[in-house]
Amino acid sequence: MKKLITLAAGTATLLGTLMAGNAMAATTLDAVKQKGHLQCGVTSGLPGFSQPDDKGHWTGIDVDTCRAVAAAIFGDAEKVQFTPLTAKERFTALQSGEIDVLSRNTTWTLTRDASLGLNFTGTNYYDGQGFLIKKDIGVTDAKELNGATVCIQAGTTTELNLADYFRANNMEFKPIVFDTSEQTVQGFASGRCDVLTSDRSQLAALRSKLADPSSAVILPNTISKEPLGPVVRQGDDQWFNIVKWVLFAQINAEELGVTSENVDDMKKSDNPNIQRLLGTDGDMGAKLGLPADFGYKIIKEVGNYGEMYNRNVGPGTPLDLERGLNALWTEGGIMYAPPMR
């Protein structure tokens, strides 16, 4: 009996120590600083968002979003490590503390925001679902797609959106479901379906995989809202604010015309908005627990939002996407960041 009590006491002590060790790293920011790097969850390969390049270096807009956070904390955009995650794993990895930020092409929805113990910090890309269609079918609007066979990738919200859209418009469709995106393209190329549906950001990339890309067109319709953005764990408001304001700083920088090239000159600017952004006036960083010049570091190392966009997905890249909704609010888009003051 005595032995049992000793054993129980021992176990309790051990558990207590573990819990205490856990409680010591109080905030995510402290834990990240202690580790010396940011741990960021990304996709395991999605063109323009996060994909390893020839050198095995991660590139993409989701990747750059993480680099910006690292630049804000450490002043060094390379102090970030990437964990490639599948769609199924992504939320668990964040909940369990394996990663600090999830920047993995994740759509902001009510269910995810409210019931997973997570918070979406903003939107770094406004996406939506669209259609790729064979040119010779002659359809110019998605409303004319009644009775079409549609190639889709399995297990995505794409499938549900498609069903919703056709039901809402009283149309019939025949889905042909594939497991991966390259199989979906193959199915479309070999004529098993008339239409391919996916996020608009990916349609251009998928179209470029066809033997004759000019044989297919992207319809103008967008049938769903897919705001994609970084996600953090709920319950650490400081960390939530940091990730949120890093993106806002990038958007504000574009609006103010501050780029990675002119940022050093801009430091001498008289514009109080720029001064606050770059930390030459008013200590905005301290309110977030960051260095005063965190804005300067982000822009210097990663660039403003427009640079990040153009480098990864904009015109001239293989994805070749117009700014559209992702343009600044002053230029007809909906990218709008609260003021830094």
Partner: peptide, 14 residues
């Protein structure tokens, strides 16, 4: 995994 993550690279043909 490495192969699958790169074959979707849009700068290459299929």
């Amino acid at each position: 995994g490495t192969v699958q993550s790169t074959i979707t690279d849009p700068s290459w043909q299929n």
